[in-house]
Amino acid sequence: MRLIFLLALLFLAPPVHACTGMEECALGDRAYHVREPDGWDGTTPLPVMLHFHGWGRQGETIMGHARIAGATVPRGVLLVAPDGLGRSWDFRQPGSRDTPFAEAVLADVGARYPLDGRVIVSGYSWGALMAARFTCETQVPIAALLLVSGAFPRGMACDGQPGRVSQVYGTTDTVLDFPYGPDGDETEAVALWRRQLDCGPPSRTFEWEAVSWLTHTRHQWDCAAGLVTMDVHPASHLIPRGWFARILDEVLAPA
């Protein structure tokens, strides 16, 4: 019944827009933030990107973030950023209190905005760990999971199976150390998701860059249950310029 209720809100709710930009959306004793895409007509159903902020931040930071909001706003994506209690997230153990909170956020957004059913979940640093925890625990169908500079180990218990997982990580990260696997495997960060989506060997490996000073090596798997990509770069604990924009273009491209 919980899944039916959530799906109904994502697809059927009438538009009652409210609390956008830096204005806080109260939800019980907690809150979240919303930013609408540029040029939206107020009625066309929208995909939503639920973003979990990094440690020490809050959702309002995301509303003005050039590399996050700067990617969603021109692409017709409704950006939603919950506030973590104590500016952090409960991601370490199963049964996170933040999973039902984030589901309630999506339900409240669905009661205020017309949504088209596509839910993208993303996070940076500790927010990436919460995004993974949420995806493993929720009953909401996840179209894509986008993870920046944070990854759970392959042995984590997980029931989630998003349609796509994309990870980006810097090899010189010393905040959340880059997770090398056996024999120096640089794709260990997505081992959990390769298992969840039933992936075989990489189908493609290539290089790309959004800015001239940072080259990414893309590892890609075409899996039985979806797609997994991992972008590796030589910088540290950051959100690479242009990464969200590129991945959203790929996720939103017509099938």
Rank of each mutant, 00 (worst) to 15 (best):
E188F: 09
R154W: 02
C158S: 02
C199L: 13
P153S: 03
A189T: 05
E186C: 04
D183K: 04
S212Q: 07
S149T: 06
G163P: 06
S149K: 05
E188V: 12
E188C: 10
G163K: 13
R164P: 10
G181P: 01
V168L: 11
T172Y: 10
V165W: 06
Q196C: 12
H216L: 01
S166D: 14
R204V: 07
M156D: 09
V168M: 11
T215Q: 07
F206W: 15
E209V: 10
A210C: 09
S203A: 15
G170Y: 01
R194P: 06
G155Y: 04
R194F: 14
S149Q: 08
T215P: 01
F206D: 09
G150P: 02
Y180P: 05
G181N: 00
D177K: 13
P202C: 10
D198M: 07
F206T: 09
G184Q: 04
D185W: 07
A157K: 02
E207V: 09
T172E: 12
T205G: 14
R204D: 10
C199P: 15
W213R: 07
G184Y: 02
L146R: 07
V168T: 08
D183G: 08
M156T: 01
G170A: 10
L197A: 03
Q167R: 13
L147N: 12
V175K: 11
H219T: 02
L197P: 10
W208D: 08
V211S: 06
P201H: 05
D159K: 07
L197E: 05
W213C: 04
P162F: 02
T215A: 04
V165D: 03
T215G: 00
P201S: 11
F152W: 06
A191D: 03
P153H: 04
R204Y: 03
M156N: 02
L192K: 14
G160A: 12
G163R: 08
P182E: 08
W208Y: 15
A157C: 01
L214Y: 12
E207A: 10
F178D: 15
L146N: 00
T217H: 00
L192A: 08
G170E: 04
D198C: 14
D177G: 15
P182G: 08
